[in-house]
Design a protein around this nucleic acid. Structure first.
Lengths: 176, 176
DNA sequence: AGTTTTCCTACCCGGTGGGTAGGATATCCC
DNA sequence: GGGATATCCTACCCACCGGGTAGGAAAACT
């Protein structure tokens, strides 16, 4: 498996929240019970989501968590990155601050660009593209009919995710 | 990182072999030296490649490894799967013997299909698709001009890789 | 025979995934 | 105010595995 349970559980929590009224926070305890997941562990995950601004919390009795944005405005790329950290197929392919995909191996310009770099950048691109095209709303049946086409308008919230090159995106993947 | 160095090093070895005359086996020692990788570790990796029929070995002096097929006929999906095992974004999404993507959570038919399953199957599909569309030949500059379009004819060698559903694949991703 | 190489099995070791524990703090209801 | 209910935060724990090393047996060459 390439993503840990952090992503698995975290996405599950987000999907759970997306089904609820955004104004009434849901306690983690109830989510943990409903999903059959350990509460103490979920606390860690949801903190990551909160620090990235994906959920809001209300403390105290009758407190809990709620989405900070409507589900259609939360791309799964954001969610996964908040939970797992930067999305890279292997160590040496990392998007630096500029968003450029860099490979640790190719330093000198004369040196051929690492050969395998082309492979991993494509893989990375396809993963990020897929995750960016889906939003939380696509996961929950109630919202699904309304958001058949991906929310291209806001793409990835704050931090825009580069996909190696702009054009060349899939055409009709979202047809369910 | 989602793939370990097994995939990274293994792909590097395969790319190295692809540049050589297929009739003259290359010793792992020379590859290890050229790529700056530990020989003893590469031995493990190359055994996986051999058991999957991707490389052939000749023992003894002047022995070594060579590709068992021309580079255009070796999809990167095969290579990565030989090295890393089955490609799945998370634990619960695994292609079973039939090639169907199953999720451990959804057992009963009435139960909504796990919500998150849609996400992970799409991610899995996009990874596998990207890997299947590339061959070893695409990694080495000499062969690259000849194989600009992906080898759709043989797809993935022996074991065909299912991608959740047949139609609905991206249209012009492969244009480089 | 001796060298080179693959092949195989066993071992090791640090990191991290996947949690648990326990308390501090904030907010509600009575 | 005083519980009760939550989030928050820091610390700790443990099994597993990624990423190797070690050492030798068997095969093929010169």
């Amino acid at each position: 498996m390439m993503f840990s349970t952090k992503a698995e559980y975290g996405v599950r929590v987000m999907a759970h929240l997306a089904k609820r009224d955004p104004d009434a926070p849901v306690s983690l305890g109830s989510i943990a019970e409903a999903e059959g997941l350990p509460l103490a562990y979920l606390e860690h995950l949801v903190q990551r989501l909160r620090r990235e601004g994906l959920v809001e919390s209300r403390r105290g009795a009758r407190g809990g968590y709620s989405l900070s944005r409507p589900p259609e405005a939360i791309s799964m790329a954001e969610v996964v990155r908040a939970l797992e950290g930067d999305i890279a197929p292997i160590e040496c392919i990392t998007a630096d601050a500029d968003g450029q995909l860099v490979c640790a191996r190719d330093g000198e310009p004369g040196h051929e660009p690492c050969a395998t770099k082309l492979l991993w950048t494509r893989v990375q691109g396809s993963i990020v593209r897929t995750l960016s095209e889906m939003t939380l709303a696509d996961l929950i049946p109630e919202h699904r009919q309304g958001s058949a086409e991906p929310t291209r308008s806001r793409e990835a919230g704050g931090r825009t995710i580069p996909t190696e090159r702009g054009p060349g995106r899939p055409a009709e993947v979202t047809k369910t």
